[in-house]
Nucleic acid binder design. Structure first.
Lengths: 387, 387
DNA sequence: TAGGTTTGTAAGTCGTCCATACAATTTGTA
DNA sequence: TACAAATTGTATGGACGACTTACAAACCTA
């Protein structure tokens, strides 16, 4: 039930979300955006300033009509450090992140392709994390762990990592929590990525969107009506294994014709080989784009790749009616013309609807969205944002 | 912002939702389920009793240990009548529904297959609705309109009805509102159906599920974390036009290999004809099931139909991680063995996950879920339930 | 310097939830 | 039949936070 104190918590969360969505804001702006009053915003903001979560910027110049200069508030750059881990089949990234989304320190470990014992994974991970934590000036509020595979969010355990089955069953959350004495939160990495987009990336201020990772595999996170969607025990987002071609190739998961069979770098390389292109074994979307101007075969392959990506996006759009898709992964390197090609294909195939046109956007090339997203999972709990 | 009065509204909504989810409940039960106290529940319930929204049942017998008998409260059977319209390509259904989901009166009009002028549609509809409204003992709180096609929820207009293109662009909401002087709410019919399932059907008490309609077309409504999902301007739910076989048949929508091309009654009939079965032109899932015991060809076709349905469901499951799918339409007539067949296929194909097993359930055969759902769209506004 | 404008805070009001106490009603037992 | 125990439903006072109003502080133009 929403008692007075619970209402306070909800309103505080709303103010913080508004700040994440719009950047530094003064009290009157916050009041307008949240439909509240300056006085109330002051009551909410003051304790957060005292606590060190927020800090006041220096006053900005008054408007043309004079008046006391406004002092925007924003997340303190050194308050509330949180840990972020991105655990992928090939390696792990650990970082120390602030409430403002600033990445203070990063450390990376590659695993190589050979099988590892689970305790070896954990020990390498804690080593890596240890370096990062050492730079913290205050005790960590928590550690967010984004895993490249199926997870059980309730148990904080890895369920299945397609490309690294030796991780299956690893209770990564409890292990790290025990090693560090800090609470942990586990989610699949595309979901963390979506949260990163929402709070710190292109998705800022958007009500609903889908954040897709396209690389060796395909996964997605959904922000629906301002909330991060989690299926039962954290399931969902396995859009790479939705069937788009039931009579197509057999996928690594056992199904036939998954989206992943036609829209991953593996597909590009296989197709490049089939078309007898040079360098097919290391082909990437970026490489293809670079060759497209002078090589019609490369251009054709890239167009086909765009169409295949559009295929899966349209399926999601028809199901959920979203307007924005944020794409992450290698393909970002292929640049604007490639993005535009995907967008055109999607708009061609998707049903016309009175809502605005569907937008396809690429994430930043220096993609820390997932790391920031993993941190955001912690911030969500610490600040009761409710994601 | 959540002020005291807004908190009251939210808590009242929570109590009403709990009643819909669990049926008649006494104050102590309500307190337990909402995490509140008897006193607070009393404060919330009393005005609703005074207003005539709720009514007290007669006391139920005390428990073994004695005590004052509890008096469960439930929605008054004659308070707040609302109108419900289900507008499909072939005809329209109008009904008067109470807050308890009881259908007081129903009227039906068939359109036939020939083209109709839009004003003719509206006039037939208002005639039909008029009959129904005449039986109301109190002024209507609103009219919910569920449309078998794409709609613009904001404008209350039909965007596109595949099988009846002459309806395209019809501003059905404003037209009916003008004709009756009662506010109207327009949504696609699978979405209304999902809401009907949640408040009055099998979905009662479920946090998340997908309600699918399978018939001449395929559509879905999503309840995600207790909320009804609407895409931009009401888009979404067009799961029938997600591609499952990119090299398959061309669909009526222009895409190739939509789910609808392999999981509608049209597919059954076409396949039955191809297999030279008798009565193929009027074949239905129920008919197939009846023949299955003695006719292996029918049994094989039915199994294939189940597999095709499972295909689309697994796609949704992998995307959203849901555990429950409620199926509506002709196929319900095919009975338990068919349901079980679909469930088995889905569980075979879907990834294993720590969440419980995926459940496939059939709606009741006398399917008023959509009518009740259309009414529920009104109730949601009248009672500020927030759907 | 004065008047107008905007920002941020202080004091009091108001609505709702909560803890506590108490009346009402039933069961089981002496 | 009388009475204790248990349970339900309501009345009362306290707490909490948003809202309204008022006011000081800081800036602009003239």
């Amino acid at each position: 039930m929403v008692s007075a104190s619970r209402a306070g918590e909800l309103n505080r969360a709303r103010v913080l979300k508004t700040l994440y969505a719009h950047g530094p804001l003064a009290r009157p702006e916050l009041a307008r955006l949240t439909g509240s009053t300056r006085a109330t915003i002051g009551q909410i903001v003051q304790p957060l300033l005292d606590e060190g979560v927020l800090q006041e910027h220096k006053p900005i110049a008054s408007g043309i009509r004079g008046g006391k200069p406004a002092r925007p508030v924003w997340f303190s750059d050194d308050g509330w450090p949180v840990g972020a881990i991105v655990l992928l089949p090939g390696g792990v990234q650990a970082a120390l992140v602030t409430t403002s989304g600033r990445i203070v320190t990063v450390a990376t470990v590659k695993f190589g392709t050979r099988k590892l014992k689970q305790h070896a994974i954990v020990s390498r991970l804690t080593d890596c994390l240890g370096e990062v934590i050492a730079t913290a000036t205050a005790p960590l509020r928590g550690i967010g762990i984004a895993v490249g595979g199926l997870v059980d969010t309730q148990a904080g355990a890895v369920v299945r990592v397609g490309l690294a089955p030796w991780m299956n069953g690893l209770a990564i959350g409890p292990e790290i929590a025990r090693a560090t004495g800090v609470p942990t939160f586990v989610d699949p990495h595309p979901r963390a990525q979506a949260l990163g987009d929402l709070l710190f990336g292109i998705g800022r201020g958007e009500e609903s969107f889908c954040s897709v990772y396209l690389g060796a595999g395909i996964g997605a996170g959904f922000i629906l009506d301002g909330a991060l969607h989690r299926g039962s025990r954290g399931a969902g987002g396995e859009v790479g294994h939705t069937v788009v071609d039931r009579s197509g190739e057999v996928c690594s998961c056992g199904l036939r014709g998954c989206w992943e069979t036609v829209a991953t770098t593996r597909w590009i390389r296989a197709e490049a080989a089939r078309r007898e292109m040079s360098g097919s074994a290391t082909m990437s979307p970026g490489g293809l784009a670079a060759r497209s101007a002078s090589d019609p075969v490369a251009a054709a392959l890239l167009r086909e790749y765009a169409a295949n990506i559009a295929l899966g996006i349209v399926n999601i759009q028809h199901s959920l009616g979203l307007e924005l898709f944020i794409l992450h992964g290698d393909l970002v390197a292929a640049g604007e013309s490639f993005r535009s090609e995907i967008e055109t294909r999607v708009r061609e195939k998707a049903f016309a609807h009175p809502g605005g046109p569907i937008r396809i956007q690429f994430a930043d090339a220096d993609d820390y969205a997932t790391v920031r997203g993993a941190a955001a999972m912690v911030l969500s709990r610490s600040m009761a944002l409710g994601y």
